[in-house]
Simulated scan of single mutants.
Amino acid sequence: MRIRRRGIPLLLLAFLSFTGCAWLTGSAPWAVPSKPPAPVSPPPVSMADKTFAEGMAALQEGGQEIALERFSAAWKEQPGHTGVAREFEGALQALKKNGDAAYAQGKWEDAGRRWMGTLRHIGHPAVRAKEIPFTRAEIQALLDRLSANLMAKGLLEYRKGNIEAAIPQWKTILSYDPSNEEASRSVRTAAKQLENLRKLPATR
């Protein structure tokens, strides 16, 4: 009987020691293991952000006009888009600068296209007029001067009888300004005359 009485306290002490350690470690021996937390999915990317990212990719490849078009689409989807507000003016200034460089190199079509793109986007709400070093009127003046020079070159060739050399000058204007009626009319007239000349019998 004495052995049994001594054994009971020892067993009780061992049990309490075991459970005490379990509570200290934060888990009971009979507790069910908890499941790990489910992974948190990232928030979905908005259509405006996707379009803005496309614009940034185009900008990194040197496509300022494409970038401005994508930025404009992103702004339309989400007015006040912070990324567009941050990048739009820089892209616009780069486009105008590239037009200036093309003009200096005698690349009239490239210059006209880039200046026309600048003119098209200069009125965007993301543009702060005081932050850009040129105005709409100045860009329009550059385009008008370029078109006038090309018209004059075409007329000079036309009056010399070089109709085939005149037409490309006027077509260059139409490449960046399709609504230019003077250039369009000149191309039609010259093309008709050239066609009539080709119908004439060859002289010996």
Rank of each mutant, 00 (worst) to 15 (best):
G99L: 05
F18I: 02
E131V: 09
A137N: 00
A191G: 12
S72F: 09
L146P: 02
F71G: 06
G117Y: 07
A137K: 06
Q169V: 11
C21Y: 13
A38Y: 13
E89Q: 04
A183L: 07
E87W: 15
F15Q: 05
Q60D: 13
E131H: 13
E61Q: 03
R2H: 14
V187N: 13
K130W: 02
L24P: 00
E69D: 09
R136M: 02
R113V: 11
A202N: 01
P37D: 10
D177R: 06
F52Q: 12
N196C: 06
Y158T: 04
F134P: 08
I163Q: 10
P36K: 08
A183N: 03
Q78M: 04
E69Q: 12
S41P: 02
R136I: 04
A148I: 09
G154Y: 07
A48S: 15
F88V: 03
L10F: 00
E138F: 03
Q105A: 07
K97L: 05
I3V: 09
L68K: 06
I3L: 10
A129F: 09
G83F: 00
H121Y: 15
S179L: 05
H124W: 01
S179D: 11
R114P: 01
A137L: 02
G83I: 02
T19P: 04
L197G: 05
L13D: 04
K35R: 15
I173N: 00
A148S: 14
T118C: 08
G112Y: 05
R6C: 03
T118K: 03
T118Y: 06
R4A: 07
W23L: 13
Q140S: 11
A111R: 00
S147N: 11
L156T: 13
R113N: 05
A31H: 00
Q78I: 03
P168G: 08
K107D: 02
P168R: 09
E54T: 14
E77A: 10
I173A: 00
G106Y: 00
E182Y: 14
T203R: 15
L156S: 12
V84M: 07
A165F: 05
L13V: 09
A141K: 01
G80C: 03
R113K: 15
P125M: 06
I122F: 04
T118D: 12
S179R: 03
K160S: 05
Q93R: 12
I8R: 14
R5G: 06
N98R: 04
N98C: 00
T19I: 11
W23C: 11
G83E: 01
N196K: 08
R86W: 12
R198T: 14
S147K: 12
E77F: 06
F15L: 13
I163N: 10
I3H: 13
K97G: 07
T19W: 08
V32G: 10
L194S: 15
